[in-house]
Design a protein around this nucleic acid. Structure first.
Length: 509
RNA sequence: GCUCCGGUAGUAUAGUCCGGCCAAGUAUAGUGGCCUCUCGAGUCACGGACCCGGGUUCGAAUCCCGGCCGGAGCACCA
């Protein structure tokens, strides 16, 4: 150990890393898991769970497990479509799944442990009505079922499995300390009866009447699957306490748990029920409606998985709640997009600008990327026609609105013009000069343009789901879906479709 | 009500465990300059924070006590 390390000054641009996992030397291998209920698509609210779990597994050369927690066919009923959506989202996030499990395939395993717990007197079948049970435990008193013999409870258990108890009339409880200061942990419910004919499970149908609750299923699985680090939201804090009783009964050692705070993003609602409701009612166009913070929507808008990951790693696993702003995400994304995206002109709400007295034809070469001159160009020729030697180009309505007689503006990379007359419908101008230097010192406005005849219809869906119609330049005809480009002076967009016309989704400035 | 967890600039984060290098670093957002044939990027500068009150100490963002504020759990949900 160096007593006086020559601590160098902190490097400024140092990449932020995750804090080290506690007690890593005590485990053979780091195994983490992400365990969603497939009752909705994934959204930014799950990003911490996914990316932290996956990232820690990678950093320590461990394993990352995906486990579908689909043990509630009634209240939070899973739906078949979401299993695959979730797999796709993880793949998109570049989170490779080393092992996958589905709890609805593992019901007999939970039964086995339930039986063992009951037989050992560590769990019991409670037939009390919930209110009466609650009344007892709040006062630290056992319910009438608790002290019956294990033998009797085994018989009740068999009856539960055989259909002898209708839904709601019996529940298996794991024994805890009735004096535990937190009433919420006292003799928690582990398995319950669900009318499987009425509420068939989307995967296994009506095969099971008895379903494990979260703490039973997750608790058993975390041990059986060798999970060494549970990384989950702090709303699970008391579940950890509850599960420790289960582990003690079974002679297991509870994994290490890291509880992070809730992640929100300003203005976005990250409530699964609202998302599902809104999509089903048609309020949202789909799971990828740009107003949603689902991964599907972010992907559609050209937000990169890399940006999301970087942001989550920067935020880290601390237990404080965080409310991120979209600007923050955009900034991460912009850093990734800016160096790699080609530039094109997109004219929103086009207005025709006619320039007179153009002395000659101009061949223009517009670089695809300002910092990469070798990266290629878009080429256009503008040729004056008619007695007035006129050239017509499309410009954005917002630019046209800024024009007034006498004002000099530069059509980027083309030439300078002086405005003669401007209205919402058309702008008249006259050629002034070609050189950029001429107008640079007077700081003339630089505007983008598309030659009339070179336009390609394009609509951009904005982040509030509104749509902006306009023209993209002709070179955009060769763009393929999924390309992310920057429409200069407009923002980054992801091309969603490119056939008769271009359809794009707006990412951010 | 009971139990638990948090609180550093607009937002997020570093530092808190092991008090001094923190008159608090970084990112983003804001403002201004430079640069640039994008209102983009880059670059330089500026403004901006330790929830409050006591205590311990030569010294507290960091330790102790009290308070305030925020969040979560208290489901036969996950």
């Amino acid at each position: 150990m160096e007593k006086w390390p020559q601590t160098p000054k902190k490097e400024k641009a140092e990449e932020k890393r995750l804090p080290p996992l506690p007690n890593v030397d005590e485990v053979k291998q780091v195994v983490t898991r992400f365990s969603p209920n497939p009752d909705c698509v994934l959204h930014l609210g799950s990003a911490r769970a996914i990316l932290l779990s996956h990232e820690y597994a990678r950093v320590y050369n461990g394993k990352f497990v995906l486990r579908f927690e689909d043990t509630d066919p009634k209240v939070k009923r899973p739906s078949l479509e979401f299993y695959d959506y979730i797999r796709q989202d993880l793949a998109w996030l570049d989170c490779k799944v080393d092992e996958e499990y589905i709890q609805s395939d593992r019901i007999p395993i939970y039964y086995e442990y339930a039986k063992r717990l009951i037989g050992d007197g560590n769990a019991y079948v409670c037939t009390c009505v919930p209110d009466e049970f609650r009344e007892k435990t709040v006062n630290k008193e056992p319910c009438p079922c608790r002290d019956l013999s294990p033998q009797e409870h085994l018989e009740r258990w068999q009856q539960m499995l055989d259909g002898g108890y209708p839904e709601g009339s019996a529940v298996v409880r794991v024994k805890t300390d009735l004096n535990h200061p937190n009433p919420a942990v006292r003799d928690w419910p582990a398995l319950r009866v669900i009318d499987s004919a009425k509420y068939p499970h989307p995967r296994v149908g009506s095969k099971y009447r008895v379903w494990p609750l979260y703490n039973m299923a997750a608790g058993v699985d975390d041990h059986l699957l060798g999970i060494t680090y549970i990384i989950r939201g702090k709303e699970h804090l008391t579940n950890g306490v509850r599960q420790e009783y289960l582990y003690r009964h079974l002679g297991w050692e509870y994994p290490q748990a890291i509880h992070y705070g809730r992640l929100k993003i300003t203005g976005a609602f990250l409530s699964k029920s609202k998302i599902v409701e809104g999509v089903k009612s048609g309020e949202f166009a789909g799971w990828d409606d740009p107003r949603l913070a689902t991964f599907a929507a972010l992907r559609k808008r050209g937000i990169t998985a890399e940006a999301i990951k970087k942001m989550i790693v920067d935020v880290g696993p601390k237990p404080a709640d965080v409310t991120l702003s979209w600007e923050n995400l955009y900034s991460y994304n912009r850093k990734i997009l800016d160096p790699q995206c080609d530039r094109y002109f997109f004219v929103a709400d086009p207005v025709k600008l006619t320039v007179k007295n153009v002395p000659k034809a101009f061949d223009v070469k517009l670089p695809l990327h300002p910092e990469k001159p070798e990266g290629g160009v878009r080429e256009y020729t503008v040729t004056p026609t008619g007695e007035e030697a006129a050239v017509s180009v499309w410009i954005a309505k917002t630019d046209a609105a800024n024009m007034e007689g006498g004002k000099v503006v530069r059509l980027m990379e083309l030439f300078n013009v002086k405005i003669e007359a401007a209205s919402d419908a058309a702008v008249q101008a006259v050629f002034v000069s070609e050189s950029y230097e001429d107008v640079r010192k007077v700081r003339a406005q630089l505007i983008h343009w598309i030659p009339v005849g070179e336009e390609f219809p394009c609509s951009v869906v904005m982040s509030d789901a509104s749509s902006v119609a306009g023209f993209a330049e002709g070179a955009c005809k060769k763009l393929k879906p999924d390309a992310v480009v920057q429409f200069e002076r407009f923002g980054f967009v992801r091309i969603d479709a490119a056939a008769e016309k271009l359809e794009a989704y707006y990412a951010h400035k």
